[in-house]
Simulated assay, not measured.
Amino acid sequence: MSDDGRGSGVRTALVIGGGVAGPVTALALRKAGITATVYEAYPTAADGVGAWLGLAPNGQAALATVGADAVVRAAGHPVPGMVMADGAGHRLTGFGGFPELPATLTLPRERLFRALTDRAVAEGVRFAYGKRLVAAEETSDGVTAHFADETSATADILIGADGIRSTVRTVIDPRSPAPEYGGVLSFGGYAAVGSEAGVEPGTMYFAFGQVFMGYWQGADGRIIWFAGLPTDAPPSPADMVRVPAAEWLSRLRDLYAGHVPGERLLRHTGPDDLMVVGRMERMPSVPRWYRGRMVLVGDSVHAPSSSSGQGASLAIESAVELARCLRDLPTPGEAFAAYEALRRPRVEAIGRNAAAVNKVKAGKADAPGPAFPTPEEMFRPLHFHRIDWEEKVTAG
């Protein structure tokens, strides 16, 4: 079927949330002939929000479908290789990436937001800021979103791309599950250690043990690291912000004493270079992905936690698949059902694997051993996944 939006009869869409999934969903819908407006709760584009992330080859391939791969590559730093080690500095295994695929990109989340938003705006997508959703109501032929500023908007469908604390998720199903805490408080930072860290450019390191740390060399030569502070009783986000960065850094240094190279990296990280990311969370299985003319996409329905390395990539894939289904199937309900059937098995399997890694990081399970899958075995089904935009979606 041509990209004219006639499949489901949908002509217009409200996309709630302007993070990663929102702009990509709007771009994919536009390619399918559907006009989408993105409604974002923040008063401006969310610059400065979030820490670093990785965008895997499968996510980049999905971005290519909507013409946004080049702008994101320009914003990111390629890191093709990886090494797994223990906390004493002993190498366990390594992986140079798949030669036929592009390298995983690392970039600050805000830079990805900006690149995707700019691309969507350039393609004619409209963004409305300061629009915090408080309610939504359906009619037989549309859905109306109501915002905290007492304005409203109506379209044929409403798509919740509003993150792990999604309002749309609770509108669709008030009994939907809340995010699941993974037992770890997440932190990141920058360490100016030069060659002392023994880091090969273009390689990401994962050091397991009593505690976990990941790290790689950034484009400016500094080491970018991410680490966790296990705790069974996590403070609230507001309480975390109230703790001075120097205090968090002191606690991390105590925890990582003797860790290779965590002790050294933390010693060369100052309070101003610390990122307090917050609680490591994931979405458990969400029973209802859609209801009537409303549907969920991205972290609102399948946030796998940062341990997966796939959060952004899965959100981008889902945005493209949702648009394909709306393009090809006769009603929104059939399109949403096909979309869920295409996506649920993949995203939930990845989420379960990430939950297992979270247990290791929280000290609730053993670190990877000889029976652990090789990196090639782990990454092949993730990185080689492709969506054929030209293939027609069929119901059932």
Score class of each variant (00 low, 15 high):
residue 310 Q to F: 04
residue 276 V to C: 08
residue 187 F to E: 13
residue 186 S to Y: 09
residue 233 A to V: 12
residue 395 A to D: 03
residue 392 K to E: 15
residue 251 R to G: 06
residue 274 L to Q: 11
residue 165 R to W: 09
residue 110 E to Y: 14
residue 97 G to V: 10
residue 172 I to N: 06
residue 97 G to S: 13
residue 95 F to W: 15
residue 166 S to F: 02
residue 50 G to M: 07
residue 55 L to A: 07
residue 5 G to T: 04
residue 270 G to I: 04
residue 26 A to G: 03
residue 206 F to T: 05
residue 171 V to Y: 00
residue 225 W to S: 04
residue 306 S to H: 12
residue 250 S to L: 13
residue 53 L to A: 08
residue 317 E to N: 10
residue 57 P to C: 05
residue 94 G to P: 13
residue 375 P to K: 07
residue 105 L to N: 09
residue 88 A to D: 13
residue 204 M to Y: 05
residue 83 V to Q: 15
residue 249 L to D: 03
residue 288 R to W: 02
residue 132 R to S: 15
residue 156 D to P: 06
residue 270 G to H: 10
residue 220 D to A: 13
residue 135 A to I: 04
residue 237 P to F: 11
residue 384 F to M: 10
residue 347 V to K: 00
residue 8 S to T: 01
residue 306 S to G: 14
residue 334 E to G: 12
residue 19 G to A: 14
residue 113 F to H: 15
residue 143 V to W: 04
residue 320 V to T: 08
residue 179 P to Q: 04
residue 204 M to K: 11
residue 362 A to N: 00
residue 206 F to W: 11
residue 228 G to C: 06
residue 179 P to W: 01
residue 206 F to G: 06
residue 13 A to V: 02
residue 304 P to F: 05
residue 298 G to K: 03
residue 309 G to A: 12
residue 93 T to M: 15
residue 21 A to Y: 05
residue 203 T to L: 11
residue 207 A to S: 14
residue 171 V to S: 05
residue 301 V to E: 02
residue 186 S to A: 15
residue 84 M to W: 14
residue 318 S to L: 07
residue 196 E to C: 11
residue 62 A to D: 00
residue 317 E to Q: 13
residue 79 V to Q: 11
residue 24 V to T: 06
residue 273 D to L: 03
residue 47 D to T: 09
residue 311 G to T: 07
residue 84 M to I: 12
residue 249 L to V: 08
residue 133 L to P: 06
residue 211 V to L: 08
residue 58 N to W: 01
residue 230 P to E: 09
residue 243 V to G: 08
residue 31 K to T: 00
residue 208 F to D: 02
residue 123 E to V: 12
residue 213 M to D: 00
residue 152 S to W: 02
residue 145 A to F: 04
residue 2 S to P: 11
residue 324 R to N: 05
residue 271 P to T: 11
residue 380 R to D: 14
residue 20 V to I: 15
residue 275 M to P: 00
residue 152 S to G: 13
residue 52 W to Q: 11
residue 253 R to P: 00
residue 372 F to V: 06
residue 210 Q to C: 10
residue 256 Y to S: 01
residue 68 A to M: 00
residue 313 S to V: 04
residue 193 V to R: 05
residue 11 R to H: 10
residue 128 A to E: 15
residue 274 L to W: 05
residue 68 A to T: 01
residue 246 A to T: 13
residue 33 G to S: 03
residue 168 V to N: 04
residue 225 W to N: 06
residue 11 R to K: 12
residue 63 L to D: 04
residue 158 L to F: 05
residue 230 P to S: 10
residue 247 E to A: 05
residue 86 D to T: 09
residue 142 G to E: 08
residue 322 L to G: 09
residue 271 P to R: 09
residue 130 G to S: 12
residue 390 E to T: 09
residue 4 D to Q: 07
residue 327 R to I: 13
residue 29 L to Q: 00
residue 281 E to K: 01
residue 79 V to S: 13
residue 93 T to P: 15
residue 393 V to E: 09
residue 311 G to P: 11
residue 60 Q to D: 01
residue 230 P to N: 09
residue 130 G to W: 01
residue 142 G to W: 01
